[in-house]
Amino acid sequence: MTVLADVVFWVLAVIAVVAGAWVFRFDSMARATYALAVSFVAVGLALLLVDLDYVGMVVVLMMVMEMAVMAVYMIMFMGMNPALMPMSMVHDNRKAVVAAVAGFVLLGGGALLVPWPVRRGVPAPDGTAALGEALMGSKMLVMMAVSPVMVATIVAGIAIAAPRGRYDRLGDDLDRGRADDPQPGGVGR
């Protein structure tokens, strides 16, 4: 089982990194999006190998949907042929490569050289249940903080992306008696 887990992990690791690298090599932004989705799915499946069942599935499901939205978004707004369009839209490529390699060497070197402590404790028999109990108990504050942030994100996203806001409809001082809408509504009073 351990050997099989090792093999599966390394296959997923190679897929995750190679697909991640191809994100910036594909000539099509739609394909780049799919490559990123593949990278996320590989990492999500790798999480399952360390008994992070819930988090792993959340990552897979959320990122697949997110990449689908991203693909639609790019096809809508970027005005690019989603199939094949040669592109090389980079700046400071050399500096970026140097920074990326330096970051990898620093982090990877640290991972290999740091004398990591031994494991403390053992995982709960049902990790998902333990996570749920923590979120609804001792870690409730985390949920209480994340939830309003999510709501604020929804409101802010709509406010920023909406084509017409209340100032467009009711004037800069919000004192226009009748909203200036392209398609007037109401009952004509």
């Binding site: 992990f9 994100v23 980079v90 400071d92 990326a100 290999l112």
Partner: peptide
């Protein structure tokens, strides 16, 4: 599968992402 192996893979992902974040011109990229 060891801690070091997982962290090195994570560092590789971080490095690739750092390259993209610094080099790409398109906002979505």
């Amino acid at each position: 599968m060891t801690l070091q192996a997982l962290l090195v893979v994570a560092a590789a992902l971080f490095g690739v992402g750092l390259y993209g974040a610094l080099s790409q011109q398109v906002v979505v990229m």
